[in-house]
Design a protein around this nucleic acid. Sequence first.
RNA 1: GUGGCUAUGGUGUAAUGGUUAGCACAGAGGUUUGUGGAACCUUUAGCAUGGGUUCGAUUCCCAUUAGCCACCCCA
Length: 459
Amino acid sequence: MSPKKHTMKYKKPAVESRPKPAPAEEEKSKKTAAGLALVRGMKDILPPESALWREAHQVFERVAGAYGFEYIETPIVEAASLFIRSLGRSTDVVEKEMYLFEDRDGGKLCLRPELTASVVRAYIMHGLQTLPQPVKVWSAGAVFRYDRPQAGRYREFHQLGCENLGEKSPVVDAELIALAYNFLRDLGIPVVVHINSLGTPADREQYLVELVGYWKSKRTYLCEDCKRRLTKNPLRILDCKNDSCQPVIAEAPQIIDWLSDDSKGFFMRVLEYLDELSIPYVLTATLVRGLDYYTHTVFELYEETAEEKSQNALGGGGRYDLLAEHLGGQPTPASGFGLGVERIMSVWEKRRAATTPAAVPGAVNVFFAQLGEQAKRRSLYLIEELRREGISVHHNLAKSSLKVQLEAANKLGATHTIILGQKEVQDGTILVRNMDSGIQEIVDQKKLKQTLRRLLGVS
RNA sequence: GUGGCUAUGGUGUAAUGGUUAGCACAGAGGUUUGUGGAACCUUUAGCAUGGGUUCGAUUCCCAUUAGCCACCCCA
C-alpha cells in the first residue's frame, strides 16, 4: 500500500472530481494480484507434478486394494476433543500444532492433524465392530499441523493411511508394513523399516522409571538440551545427536529388555513375519513415536539412502490396541500407518528424474492441426470422435498457420500430428505425421481411428 | 516456539547511493499466409511489505512477512 506512488503515477487533474477512489481503482487489479498470498505452510500442486501426485494415489489405491483394504473417507473437521483424547493432551501435536477454532455455536472444533483417530471414531460410531473382523480400510486426505514450515514440512499436508481394526495378531502388523513397503517399492523408492516395540503401558512405565534413573546417574555427561529433556521427555534423549551424549545413550537401558514376556513374544513374531516377507528392517531401540496411543509395534519408513536426514521419514505407524476403548468403544485391537504424500513425492520425483527422463502420465499424444475454414469445421467432428475413443487430442483452432500449429504440437510433445487441409477435406483423406521421424501418411478419414490406435499402441 | 541465512519480471540470475534495473529461459506477436524442433525481429513482465538514514535508495539500517537451514517435532 503506497497511495503516494499511485497518485503520482496516475495524476489526472481532470478526474479530480472523484478524489481518491479513482486512482485506487485503476491500480486495483495489480494490487490484488500482488496482495494475494498463500497462507503460510500451504502449497498449490500444479501440472505437471499434479499428474504424478494423482498417479501416486492410484498406485496406493491399487496396492491397498490388493491387500483387501476398502476406502473410507472422514471429515476434515472434527471435534477437538477427539484428538485431545486420542493423541494425548501433552503431545506436541495437540499441545501446539492443532488448528483449533470455534464453531458459530461455540463448539470446539479442529482441522484433523492425522487420519487414524477419525477412522476409529467412525468405526465406533457406525457399529463396524459388528462386521466380520478385522475391518480393513484405507484413507487419503489433507491433514493440518501448525508447525513451522520447512523443506518437507507443511502446515497442510497429505497422508495416505491404512487401518486394520479388530484383530490382535502380529501378522496384521507385518502385513501393514509389507503394504507400505511394497507401495513405495512400486514407486521405485527403496525403503528401510525402523521398528521397535513399546509394549504395554505397564511395560513402558517400568522402563521409564529405569531409564530416568539411568539418566540421572549420568546427568553430568549429558548435553544441556538433554538435561532439559530429562524432566520433560526422557525418551527423547535417546534421539539426541550431540556427540557428547552418544556414549551415555549407547549404554542406556533398552525398552526391549523391559517388555513382559507376552509383549516380547508378540514383537518377536512380528519380526519373524517380516523375515518371512523378506522385508528389511532395522531394530531401533530409540524409536518412540510422538503420539500417546501406540502400544507394542511402532515403525517408521525411511528412504534407503546413506545420508540420514531428520526430515525424511516417509511415514510411520504402529499398533494402538487401547485407542478404541479409550475413545469409548469396545476394546478393539488395531494397527495402522500413515504416509506423507509430499515427502513421497519429493523422493519419487528425484528418483524419476534420475531414471526415466520424460514420460509424464497424461502427456499429450496427438495434436490436431487444421487449415482453412472448412477444415476447421470438419475437424471439430473428427476431434470429438477421437476423444470418444479415449485418445488425448490437443489442438489450437484459434490459429491458422500450419507452422504455428506444428510448433505448438512440438512444444506439447505430441507424438503425432493430424493435419486436415482444404485438399483433404475435398477428397476425404487426412494426414498423420509422426513427429519424431517427420514421416506422414495419408489415410482415409474413416480409417483415422484405426490408424491412430495402431500408431499409439492402444488396443 | 528458538536461532541462523536469504528475498530483483513466471523461472534462473546480473549490476548500481542518482537520468530508461541488464541478461537467459518461458509467454505473446511476427519474419507475406500447407509443414515443427534452429535463427532473427518486436513485445509483455520485476527491485516482498512498511518504516528510517539521505538532497536522493532497488542498493545502507530497522521491523514485518515469506522461503531455506538447524533445533524441536514428525509426515
